[in-house]
Lab assay of single mutants.
Amino acid sequence: NITNLCPFDEVFNATRFASVYAWNRKRISNCVADYSVLYNFAPFFAFKCYGVSPTKLNDLCFTNVYADSFVIRGNEVSQIAPGQTGNIADYNYKLPDDFTGCVIAWNSNKLDSKVGGNYNYLYRLFRKSNLKPFERDISTEIYQAGNKPCNGVAGFNCYFPLRSYGFRPTYGVGHQPYRVVVLSFELLHAPATVCGPKKST
């Protein structure tokens, strides 16, 4: 009989979020998941679920829940969905086509923008091939755009693969920082350890 609540607040209220190319993952297990707390949290810009209804989450049990978190621009949030393409979905964070879970995003301009620009948040701009679902690539190898080998030196046709967002408070909404948490639900042939409040007695 599990009684402790799942530590969703640790994920959602973290002081610093990860850059999207180096997205953070927390495994959540052996706890009671009260999703209504999240669902009623006012400032969400997006709360979209795939393969599961957000209002039914509290009735369900899962083997594991993974909480992935990172920061992207407002106009990139739409790429955090199954079957998407674009710089983020291709080179930074890719969801599987059969994704079961929820994508939760909110504007973090007050936290993550600075006058003069916040350059701490990076994304991958160049990559030889697209990421596989949930693949994480933190390499900083110089990207070779031409035929000539770069030998690890940036220059003509040789690019550092990461780019900084440089968030400023005055940017338009599409270019403002958004914090994103992706909850993915794993249902294995194993005992369920993460259940909603109704199922955990």
Rank of each mutant, 00 (worst) to 15 (best):
L188P: 08
G174N: 15
T63E: 11
P197M: 10
T63V: 14
Y178T: 06
T3N: 11
T55A: 09
F45T: 10
L111A: 09
Q84A: 15
G174Q: 04
H175D: 11
N64W: 09
E141Q: 14
F45A: 01
T140E: 06
F47L: 11
G155S: 11
K128V: 02
E141Y: 08
V37T: 01
N147S: 11
F45M: 06
K199P: 14
L187G: 11
K110V: 02
F160E: 13
N109M: 05
T55S: 14
H189D: 12
S129R: 06
G174H: 06
L125R: 03
D9P: 01
G116E: 00
T3Y: 14
G166T: 12
T85R: 06
G196Q: 03
R163S: 11
R27I: 15
R27K: 11
A22Q: 14
P149H: 06
K110L: 09
F156W: 01
V37H: 14
T193I: 13
S164T: 06
F126Y: 14
T3H: 10
I138Q: 11
Y171W: 08
Y123V: 05
L5E: 03
Y119T: 15
A154H: 10
F160V: 05
F41Q: 07
T3E: 03
L187C: 12
Y35T: 07
F160L: 07
L188E: 12
F41A: 03
N157C: 14
V153I: 14
T140S: 12
Y39E: 15
Y35S: 03
S78Q: 03
P191K: 12
N24G: 02
F126P: 01
Y39G: 06
A190K: 08
P54Q: 10
N118G: 01
T170L: 10
N58A: 11
A154F: 13
P197N: 12
V37E: 13
H189C: 13
S139K: 06
N58E: 04
Y119D: 12
K198S: 08
A33G: 11
P43Y: 05
N118A: 14
G196C: 03
K148V: 09
N120R: 03
K198T: 06
I2A: 01
K148M: 09
V115A: 00
P54E: 08
N4E: 07
P191H: 05
Y66F: 03
S200E: 04
G174A: 06
N4L: 01
P43S: 01
K110C: 14
T140F: 15
Y159W: 12
K148D: 08
P149F: 06
L60E: 14
N1S: 01
S78C: 11
F41T: 01
K56I: 12
L188G: 14
F160D: 10
L125Y: 06
R16N: 13
Y119C: 13
A190G: 12
I2H: 07
V32A: 15
T3S: 04
N120Y: 14
N64P: 05
K198H: 03
Y143H: 12
G166K: 00
L57M: 08
A89P: 13
N4Q: 06
D90E: 12
D90M: 14
F44D: 00
V71T: 00
L187A: 11
L125H: 02
N24T: 13
S36T: 03
G166W: 02
L111S: 05
F41H: 15
S129P: 09
S113T: 10
N87H: 02
N118R: 00
N147I: 04
T63M: 09
P149D: 04
K110Y: 12
K132C: 06
R16W: 11
D90S: 15
N24S: 02
Y123R: 09
D9K: 12
R163T: 14
Y66S: 01
I2P: 15
V115C: 00
E141L: 09
T170K: 00
K56R: 07
N75S: 01
R27A: 10
N58P: 12
